[in-house]
Nucleic acid binder design. Structure first.
Lengths: 342, 342
DNA sequence: TATTAGCACTCAGGATGGTTGAGTGCTAAT
DNA sequence: ATTAGCACTCAACCATCCTGAGTGCTAATA
């Protein structure tokens, strides 16, 4: 993107800000009046025409003001937006909104989503990613019925997964305990991915069946861990977004709800932000989020990244407000999880 | 409700059916033409006026046809609706939609919701109720960090719950195993409610502390099981409902989404149907479901009721279609769970 | 040369009014 | 008891007009 001269930048910024505030097209007169760069509406119009030429603005129809295009927002965010830091007071306030003592992972995530949504007035998202990326801590088996077992495995970060598997023969609880003891000793500290590797390798070597218990243990844990568990996504405050004027028409509402319902689009985006550092901003049809933006950040404990959170709002979102909230929340959550981990 | 004479019944039924099909007010002419009770529009009008007087019909404005009121629907459902049985072919088809092998409880529930929604074209609900009503099967402890434990407990029906608790002292894994062994022996076969009772009683008698292990076991399990775990509700296909003409206005959409988001209203209703037998129908502002109805049924295995499922749709729903689907699905799910339980 | 005043033009949105058609209630005739 | 007939009502649709906000262009200005 070519650099803009200062005047153009100022005017673009003014337009974006006004539009964020009002959700309505902004006209040259309004700009020249409300912002005090001593310029007549006519001059402003000239600049606006240039900006439109460059694809940063557009007008819904001839006699309406201009609104920023996606590209316009992009430019604004990349070059003009300055994120203010939260004041200590705000940080304190934010910190006190979050109270997680005694909550288990899932509940914390849900609560974080709710609070994010409440603070931003948009939809809050929290994703706990695939189990595969976590570190194995413990596995337990519960016999449900003949040949049917419930497997429960716990990650280093405190995530719990359970799954029902079928064994070809019945196994009693005493034996199951031995098996889990064996596995817990053997697999401790590996990531689930490593565990899978190890199991696969050992099972190939094990064809000789010289140790019945061990063979059983391997095949059971293999069955338990083999397939992917999906990312878990918590969404809160969808209906808050429906209050926004850009979603006032039935059609737009429907589309929005569908987006949230399928979750896939959101998970993909959060997955992407998973691997990045710091706050990410995704804009509009960047990826099937027509008219919306996603502000996200990942969180982690000292054992590594464990998830991502964020806020989805209309593209016309108050970024300078929401970005620091998301950022700080991610840090807070990271710290909490760290404390929990040890 | 006073009994209606046959003609009135016929006409009411015709109106309800036409309205269900079209979602539009139905007029006297349409009735007298489409249904062949040789009556002129004028006669139909007379009857309609009576029905309106009784509060079973109303007209949105003078020159529109009539639509059934809530009371009208209620009467229709109570007295006129006849539920056809599913044909064997339909049953077979339904049965083959449901494939749950190797799925764990949560996934089954989610899948059932999705399928219910798909079949009915409305929103599908499945609720797994409070843990308290289930029978204890097994408890396991995992040490997370100093003094912090993860408790996992499994019900007879295969539900898994986990929770983080803090102990006042650190306990190592060997000791935890002993504790869980002890508890598993001691609490086997009781409902969670009974378990709570028992624990409370024993803890009172235990002040003497003559057995350290046992005391610890009691206090841990008490902490783990003391507080209520909420009902879990799975909702699928919200956006399908938005397609219905009655929710075409932004306002109605918003309200609907809010209802689904809070979940509370739905949980309350399903909770109610939990205890009842067979299919239940809840209509409209019966309970804060303005414009909607809920058709629900509970499911159970031979150890007792474990949940409820249903379909939420516009009050103008095709009951004769949806009721048997819900009914049969509940039976199917019950059977599946029975098979799983032993 | 950059800015601005002035002016003609555009167009969405609101107000107004007429027409249509579906539906009603009432009355008198059957 | 039923129904034909008729006057009446009213939402929905359409065309039309008007207004005001906003534009682009051009010529005058600093």
């Amino acid at each position: 993107m070519a650099e803009l001269n200062e005047r153009s930048q100022n005017i673009l910024e003014a337009i974006v800000k006004d539009y964020i505030a009002s959700a309505e097209p902004v006209g040259s007169r309004a700009i020249s009046r409300r912002h005090h760069f001593n310029l007549s509406p006519a001059s402003v119009r000239n600049v606006m025409a240039d900006l439109e030429e460059m694809g940063l603005l557009c007008s819904p129809h001839t006699s309406a003001g201009r609104i920023p295009t996606e590209k316009g927002f992009q430019y604004y965010i990349d070059s003009l937006l300055q994120i203010r830091d939260l004041s200590d007071k705000e940080k304190k306030q934010l910190r006190s909104s979050y109270r997680f003592s005694g909550m288990k992972m899932e509940d914390i995530m849900q609560e974080v989503g709710r609070i994010l949504s409440g603070l931003s007035k948009y939809a809050g998202l929290v994703m706990v990613p695939k189990f595969a990326t976590t570190v194995f801590r413990q596995i337990e088996f519960v016999r449900l019925s003949y040949g049917r077992l419930l497997v429960i495995y716990v990650s280093e970060t405190g995530l719990v997964q359970n799954k029902v598997i079928s064994a070809d023969t019945d196994i009693d609880q005493r034996q199951l305990e031995k098996i889990s003891n064996y596995l817990n000793r053997e697999l401790n500290g590996l990531t689930i991915l490593q565990v899978r590797e190890k199991l696969k390798k050992e099972m190939q070597e094990e064809i000789s069946l010289y140790d019945q218990l061990r063979t059983k243990a391997l095949s059971l844990s293999f069955a338990a861990l083999q397939d992917e568990v999906e990312d878990q996504l918590f969404v809160a405050g969808t209906s808050l977004m429906l209050e926004q004027p850009e979603f006032s028409s039935p059609d737009q509402m429907r589309r929005l709800i569908q987006t949230f319902e399928s979750k896939k689009i959101l998970i993909d985006l959060l997955d992407r932000s998973q691997s990045a550092q710091g706050v990410q901003i995704f804009i509009g049809s960047d990826v099937d989020l027509k008219g919306c933006s996603l502000i996200s950040a990942n969180f982690s404990n000292r054992k590594g990244a464990i998830g991502a959170l964020g806020v989805v709002g209309p593209m016309r979102m108050d970024y300078s407000q929401v970005v620091p909230i998301v950022d700080f929340t991610a840090q807070l959550v990271s710290r909490v999880l760290d404390r929990e981990a040890e």
